[in-house]
């Protein structure tokens, strides 16, 4: 919510200050972030959360590159050693938007595909393209995307 108002303020800044260019937009984004950090309510500071979001984006880029190289290798290598699996990933108590974000990020990285979320929202069924050790693969998702999403949203 506060992120949306940050974007809105940035657009307003670049409309008011002069030509609508990406550089003005970027400058407006950081200036409005500063303003929101000054007048946001006590608790976890907005600026801190912004860095958590930036860390999530950076991690996503890294995973995207790594996973793509891995999938490219699966694609051209022998199919005899390929072992797909559908694993149940246990979830922390997350809110609905967080689950949506997590499912989308998991599906975006190649090699994993979200199939469904259980009715009580405590399990997510993920199709893996290749699994060596099931518990390790589940742990990788929990300590990677899930932890970073929780840091970024709360």
């Amino acid at each position: 919510m506060i992120f949306a108002s940050n974007i809105l303020l940035a657009i307003l800044w670049s409309l008011l200050i002069g030509p609508f260019t990406p550089y003005n937009l970027l400058a407006g984004f950081f200036i409005s972030m500063l303003a929101l950090a000054v007048c946001s309510n006590p608790g976890r500071a907005y600026a801190m959360r912004f860095w958590a979001i930036a860390a999530l984006l950076l991690f996503l880029t890294k995973e995207l590159v790594k996973a793509n190289i891995r999938v490219a290798y699966y694609t051209v290598s022998s199919l005899k050693t390929l072992h797909p699996a559908i694993l149940a990933v246990p979830l922390e108590p997350l809110t609905d938007p967080e689950i949506t974000l997590l499912a989308n990020l998991i599906t975006l990285t190649p090699g994993t595909l979200t199939l469904d979320v259980s009715a009580d929202k405590r399990q997510m069924f993920v199709h893996f393209m290749h699994v060596d050790d099931p518990s390790e693969a589940v742990q990788e998702i929990k300590s990677g995307f899930e932890r970073r999403i929780m840091e970024a949203t709360r």
Binding site: L64, A67, N68, V71, A72, Y74, T75, L79, L82, P84, L108, T109, P110, G111, T112, L113, H127, M129
Partner: peptide, 18 residues
């Protein structure tokens, strides 16, 4: 090359998106 729908979809849509 991929053997079933799910693995096929993984390599097709993700690498295609990128």
């Amino acid at each position: 090359r991929m053997p079933d729908l799910y693995t096929r979809m993984q390599s097709a849509t993700k690498a295609g998106t990128l």
